[in-house]
Nucleic acid binder design. Structure first.
Length: 528
RNA sequence: GCGGGUAUAGCUUAGUGGUAAAGCUCCAGCCUUCCAAGCUGAUUACGUGAGUUCGAUUCUCACUACCCGCUCCA
């Protein structure tokens, strides 16, 4: 298969997943009836169950089943000083500019300063076709480069304004050429020498005004929607330390919404403007930092496997020097093979003592830790496993989606769509079906089973349509088990089968007989 | 943000300058003893706003959203 075909297949796969998510109530576009809100998504009845299962499992694994991590739920509205200290105000923006010739987009702060001769032009014309344009353009000639190459670049730039495609760019005449020496400029694309647009600042934080009567332009009233949950953990570090009787190393965990004014939301829910994070700030001594970063990488990888993301589709990127945040000594990105590419799910970063030190400096409050054993006082270092909750949901949806061709009793081939969620993540754990709805005894018994299981897990009762149809409906939403109450259950086929039901497994479609009394244990073991 | 594409029912698609068709789904009923059976019936759509026109879902423009590429991140 060619790359193009594969790409088309991946786009088609993604479209099917998006369609199913809407059709079955996993994910809707935010404010859909008003035309949608760019980069925002709502979770429907099944989506919210899936998301709760993920968050609750993450919380159980990382907080409740460990004695070295405690939880926090910080406010989303954030004091501006917090984000000034963290560097988000001012620093949390990407100055961008575009290559006027190739339209390539570049980060202005990542352009290497260059020196050389600049050829400026005021416009161009083409005598035979009456074409002329007044528009400034410039090309940088770097050392050792030919100035004719620069003119060629300029002609190619002006040729995009030609209406007649048959005119060769070579025959254009450049106007107002003027040479100029420049040093350390970042106004030109290093790859092409072409002039760039002015850098535009995109502040990625949502700003708001606190207080209903706050006046326009009142600097003190500015607050922000947090761009990450981490900062409230650092800011509350001292309170947690003093109230929780924790000792280093220990962590503070938080799950919550964060907001980034993304320039370009993309790939369904992958890059949203409002998104949920699952973060741990694991505090330690400077000596422990590197080792704990490796520890948390493994810990997190095993978590993803335990929610049904196969290890082969998880990739670890050891972020090289120069690409990490300046305060990070080590960063691993955990990436997943999405249909639209290998993309980041989580970053495990050793952030040193950067954050606590900054807040200590800015607030003037000590955020130091006193080690009783060594009688030393220091600012703890921190390792941060920061996971994208919505991204993990998307990964689970992509991984679960499957279509299989099966041959039915009549020898006809048909397609079965099935979401192969891990049972502990599945929104609905078990479907409950009376074989026939017009037999009151079956319905009554099925309702009894429903009543028994409801307090233990999310189950779904369905009596409409043929039994096969009900199975398939549940396949499509990823329900791992279905039980069917039939005449055997009522004891009509003999006392030994009384109070047993058919248990049907989603992935294999295999059926087995099980006593109703054994259902809770059987199911709980699978979904725990 | 730039470039390209798309927008008709819950989904997948027809179609037209005189307000729309089908399949599947869904709902109700009948029937039905384990994998989307059958029959009957019902609900539901031209993304938004302007313009041209007697009349626009159709033509034009703008906007919005989504998809693809560049780019970026949890």
């Amino acid at each position: 298969m060619s790359n193009k075909d594969k790409q088309n297949d991946d786009v088609a796969a993604m479209e099917k997943i998006v369609s199913l998510c809407k059709r079955r109530g996993f994910i809707f576009q935010s404010a859909e009836i008003y035309g949608g809100l760019n980069g925002c998504w709502d979770y429907g009845p099944l989506g919210v169950e899936l998301k709760r299962n993920l968050k609750e499992y993450w919380w159980r694994r990382n907080v409740q089943e460990r004695d070295d991590i405690v939880g926090l739920d910080g406010s989303i509205l954030t004091h501006q000083e917090v984000l000034k200290a963290s560097g988000h105000v001012g620093g949390f923006s990407d100055p961008m500019c575009d290559d006027l010739l190739t339209k390539a987009r570049l980060r202005a702060d990542q352009i290497e300063p260059q020196s050389g001769t600049v050829l400026n032009f005021t416009g161009a014309s083409h005598a035979e076709s009456d074409f002329s344009i007044e528009r400034e353009f410039a090309v940088l000639i770097r050392e050792g480069e030919d100035e004719n190459k620069a003119r060629k670049t300029a002609k190619s730039y002006y040729s995009q304004f030609l209406k007649d495609g048959r005119i060769s760019p070579k025959t254009i005449e450049l106007q107002g050429e003027r040479a100029e020496e420049v040093t350390d400029t970042i106004r030109f694309n290093p790859a092409t020498g072409s002039l760039l647009t002015e850098a535009r600042e995109f502040n990625l934080m949502f700003q708001t005004t606190m207080g209903a009567s706050a006046e326009e332009g009142d600097e003190n009233a500015i607050a922000y929607l947090r761009p990450e949950t981490a900062q409230s953990i650092f800011v509350q570090f001292k309170n947690v330390l003093e109230t929780s009787r924790v000792k280093l190393p220990f962590g503070i965990a938080q799950i919550g919404k964060s907001f980034r004014n993304e320039i370009n939301p993309r790939n369904y829910t992958f890059r949203s403007r409002e998104f949920e994070q699952m973060e741990i700030e694991y505090f330690c001594t400077p000596e422990q930092g590197m080792e704990l970063t490796d520890y948390w990488l493994e810990e997190r990888l095993s978590f993803y496997e335990d929610i049904g993301l196969p290890r082969e589709k998880l990739h670890v990127l050891d972020v090289p020097d120069g690409e990490r945040a300046h305060y990070s000594k080590k960063t691993y990105d955990i990436e997943f093979e999405f249909p639209f590419g290998i993309q980041e799910l989580e970053g495990v970063a050793y952030r040193t003592d950067y954050d606590l030190s900054k807040h200590m400096e800015k607030s003037g409050k000590s955020l130091e830790y006193f080690d009783e054993a060594t009688k030393t006082r220091f600012v703890p270092h921190v390792v941060e496993p920061s996971a994208g909750c919505d991204r993990t949901i998307l990964a689970m949806l992509c991984e679960a989606y499957d279509e299989e061709t099966i041959t039915n009793d009549k020898g006809k081939e048909e397609m079965r769509t099935v979401m192969r969620f891990h049972p502990r993540m599945a929104p609905i754990k078990c479907g409950i079906f009376p074989l026939l709805k017009n037999k009151p005894e079956l319905v009554a018994k099925a309702r009894e089973v429903q009543k028994m299981l409801t307090p233990l897990m999310n189950v779904f009762y369905d009596e409409s349509g043929a039994i096969g149809r009900r199975y398939r409906r549940q396949d499509e939403v990823g329900t791992p088990y279905g039980v069917t109450i039939d005449f055997d259950t009522l004891g009509e086929e003999g006392p030994e089968l009384k109070d047993t039901v058919t248990l049907r497994e989603r992935d294999s479609m295999k059926q087995q007989r099980i006593a109703i009394a054994d259902l809770p244990m059987f199911l709980l073991e699978k979904i725990r």
